[in-house]
Nucleic acid binder design. Structure first.
Lengths: 237, 237
DNA sequence: TAGTGGTCTAGACCACGGG
DNA sequence: CCGTGGTCTAGACCACTAT
């Protein structure tokens, strides 16, 4: 049997994650949830405080509690949004979509992503440009059953990574970072020599167990590094 | 003015971080802290629950609350302990200390670490060997004013990284990951060709604002990668 | 079985800040 | 101003578990 505060926490988390409650939207006041769940205000408060601690809601006196804007200012984000990263550091940033097409998931890639073959996906290649020099190649797959809106998105104003960050809440991500030698075409696109070291970030993101997107981002080794400040994490139940 | 539960939280965190309360040690019962701080049990409970959420204490019914064993099994740890990593994956692991000496912090390195020049430190180079092949070179600095025990440690049975993880609680760490081409001596030690890509992890760890250690770990790009599962973090106040 | 932590209540006072 | 969230109280019952 789940405790009341845990039920409230889970219910609200679900509503935020599945988009029922949109970012910026006010959620019920404590006294409203108190009536809805037939419990005391302290119990509601415990759930809302936990949600605020984890950054899912923002609380404002006199105004209420609001669904937090999509995951920004989180530690992990430091390796999420290339454009924001670059602009924060005071650089000029642009990007170009090199290719874009809708496909069905093949068997080998399905295995790699842990998804079923045959699902529709959007496959993109994007070049990120910082201070007029190529900064990264991004190979990205977006699952169209999880993110149907992506089908009609042209990514003219926002690169796919930033667009996804704003559109789709995520609950889990897996990162793999490795160093590889640049192959011929990669070296050409990134304006480096074949064989020079590249820093490659692979990231798969899930929303309630379903793959949202998979991206492989290739940086010239001499023009980029990943940085992050961590604190010991709580064992999120 | 700090709230009571925040004071209790801070006081206990300090006692754990500075070693006054050792791992495994029982901390006062809720009703004892209740008397000590002259507040209600709910207030004490809020502080202890927060400490437990963040993994600093373990709570057991009928037994009490205990200082948690040093940070293990945390997400960030996946890129912390090379030996444990390798053994978990079913590989053979050994290591060798290549050099070890006590120095004083020079001005340029002091600037890099954000510390005062002149402080004493232990400088180590360690080779990590997995399945009888070189796996990583570790250049490490341990600040002796923060970790005086390190002065007499020979690191014969445990590599410095593992030893530190067990000995010293940490509250914050900064990681930088980059890809570089192997220089001559690095290539020779790691049994690779000069110019081949290496994955380099730099990590600085602090305890209550003082540097504990700084490490630079160099992996052959074709033999290693970093992986991690993340969830959105709370904005720990 | 006895004592711990887990949870909950039905109040209360206060600081803050939006209207 | 006045409703919101922030904090706190002095109880309570219960589940769990070490002894």
């Amino acid at each position: 049997m789940k405790s009341i505060h845990q039920s409230i926490y889970d219910d609200i988390e679900t509503k935020i994650m599945d988009g029922t409650w949109q970012p910026g939207q006010r959620i019920p006041f404590e006294h409203e949830l108190e009536r809805e769940y037939g419990c005391s205000r302290m119990t509601v408060n415990k759930a809302l405080t936990a949600l605020a601690d984890r950054g899912m809601i923002l609380r404002k006196r006199r105004a209420g509690s609001f669904v937090a804007p999509p995951q920004i200012d989180r530690t992990v984000m430091e390796i999420q949004d290339i454009g924001a990263d670059a602009r924060t550091a005071g650089h000029d940033y642009t990007f170009r979509i090199l290719s874009s097409k809708i496909e069905r998931l093949g068997p080998s890639e399905a295995l790699k992503l842990g998804e079923e073959a045959g699902k529709e996906l959007l496959r993109l290649t994007c070049l990120h440009i910082v201070d007029h020099k190529p900064h990264a190649i991004e190979h990205r797959v977006i699952m169209l059953d999880t993110v149907p809106r992506a089908r009609f998105e042209t990514f003219e104003t926002k690169p796919p990574g930033s667009w996804l960050l704003e559109q789709v809440p995520w609950s889990e991500a897996r990162h793999v970072i490795r160093a590889v030698a640049a192959d011929g075409s990669t070296a050409k696109t990134l304006d480096m020599q074949k064989g020079e070291p590249c820093l490659v970030l692979s990231r798969q993101t899930w929303q309630s167990g379903r793959t949202v997107t998979f991206a492989e981002i290739i940086h010239p080794g001499d023009r980029y590094q990943f940085a992050g400040v961590f604190r010991p994490l709580s064992a999120t139940a």
